[in-house]
Design a protein around this nucleic acid. Sequence first.
DNA 1: CATGAAACTTAGCTGGC
DNA 2: GCCAGCTAAGTTTCATG
Lengths: 161, 161
Amino acid sequence: MARSQPDVGEVDDVDLAILAVLTARADITNKALAERLHLAESTCAHRVRVLRRRGLIIDTRARVDIAALGFPLRAVVNVRLGSHTKAGVTQLFQALTQIPGVIEVFHVAGEDDFVLHVAAADAHALRDLVLEHITVHPSVRSTETHLVFDRRDGVGVLPAG
Amino acid sequence: MARSQPDVGEVDDVDLAILAVLTARADITNKALAERLHLAESTCAHRVRVLRRRGLIIDTRARVDIAALGFPLRAVVNVRLGSHTKAGVTQLFQALTQIPGVIEVFHVAGEDDFVLHVAAADAHALRDLVLEHITVHPSVRSTETHLVFDRRDGVGVLPAG
DNA sequence: CATGAAACTTAGCTGGC
DNA sequence: GCCAGCTAAGTTTCATG
């Protein structure tokens, strides 16, 4: 069962180029994008619309400076469960995403069950986040909090952007 | 030195509301955004421009469906170093971000030094990513790769979006 | 599929309230 | 902060190779 091809029709090089640009600067005008890729504006707009409709472009989001907003502390929190019923895991997953300050949640294989990326105003707030919102959960056996010194974007899977 | 206030002027509730909307849908038109927040279009456009200039809005990016692009496997990779010279750590940090498939890199405190979020086409490609690009680095002592079952966005630090 | 040229929509700017 | 009016710029639609 060779399934190396995505389940979403074909994605040619032009599509990839569009995606590469848009993942870096989604607010580029269609006109500028078309120029950069040597496409007609109408063609470019059409391809972008199709990429959206096919779900290859999920959405577009502004990135805000969380530190400047008053949350300069970041941490990676590993969460380990005691029991592993499917319902319990699913429910906790959802609950974790709803905790104020939680930026993303990974459900992972291994000894730890969840890896969270969180932001907090200071060490005190970080402690409260972990103790009052995570550890408190009955199915949580333990947590491990690692302060983030720095975070950077990787190049991802797309060609040169 | 109380420094609870961000170093970027004031951010009032309207600004926060703008940021909340834009972090969810950056492609909303200024007109629609103004309506939703009960602002005049001119006021709304002005505030958004100021938020950009102040750096509170960093940029805006399209999110692509990496799995549909042919990279359905995700993993969290913990990287531990042998030596910890500042130059070595900095250089490795940069190198990790440049590895194809690496989505984000955290430099963290604790026994592990880096936490990576990566995408790969299949288990084989994932192994190659780790062995050929990470483990191979002289200052890397060990790695731990955890398959990601699922990933979700958290609510973050902004009010209801 | 891609294109160019219409009608339509939006953003950016100005002065004035 | 809001309004109004204006101009430039961008987007969408459609008929056509």
